[in-house]
Design a protein around this nucleic acid. Structure first.
Lengths: 109, 109
DNA sequence: AAACAATATCGTAATATTGCAATATTAAAT
DNA sequence: ATTTAATATTGCAATATTACGATATTGTTT
């Protein structure tokens, strides 16, 4: 035991959980916020911005990329990362739907 | 090492990350969706609904409750859980803001 | 009070995550 | 071709998560 039983859940549930999990670390939230703040997509700057070592940042970027939350494109020897708005839109839609769904119910607690 | 360096990030960043982390498991997404689906708050039913043992469900409920995503109130010997809409609202607001923020930018990748 | 029902907690094995030093890779600049 | 710069990968120690059997707790029913 110890591993998540993804096979028991729907594809959508696993998808949303994957996105949430990727955002479930303050460093990755900070990276997303930084990427949102700067107009131009910057990469190495994140290492200067956050108090974490370069390999750690690289690892966090990889996780965000695997989840589909950011995109990376090669620009010379540097790599330009930016937020993938399509994925963020999906997350926002999901929470909007949940938020709407709850409002209609009578609160029981 | 191995522990998250929460002290390096803002309170808001840690807060959002905590919420996202709590939702970062398909079982907990399934629990939230079930709680949303049923009008009345039910608890033991979740154990019947999901293919996980009772202690595992109990543990997941505890995490959702600690994060503030659900509330629980005692009803006799049973406990009635339901979604805390205030917290969901905060999450939705956060992603709305991010979503808005991105739309204004010229995509660089 | 004893039995029952619902839920929580404890203990523990299996696995995953976090963080970083050391090192590798890749492309530009000299 | 060598050096430099930017990023990725490897390896590993510390810690956290996941899942569940066994057991405890709490309130209800008989």
């Amino acid at each position: 035991m110890g591993a998540t039983k993804t096979e028991h859940f729907t594809e959508k549930q696993n998808f949303i959980a994957t996105l949430a999990k990727a955002l479930g670390h303050p460093a990755r939230i900070a990276i997303m916020e930084y990427l949102m703040k700067v107009d131009t997509c910057i990469c190495g700057d994140i290492v200067n911005e956050l108090p974490l070592a370069q390999p750690t940042i690289s690892q966090h970027l990889k996780e965000l990329k695997n989840a589909g939350l950011i995109k990376g494109s090669v620009e010379g020897n540097a790599i330009c990362y930016c937020i993938d708005e399509k994925t963020i839109q999906k997350l926002q839609d999901y929470f909007s739907k949940i938020s709407e769904g709850i409002k209609k119910k009578t609160n029981c607690c």
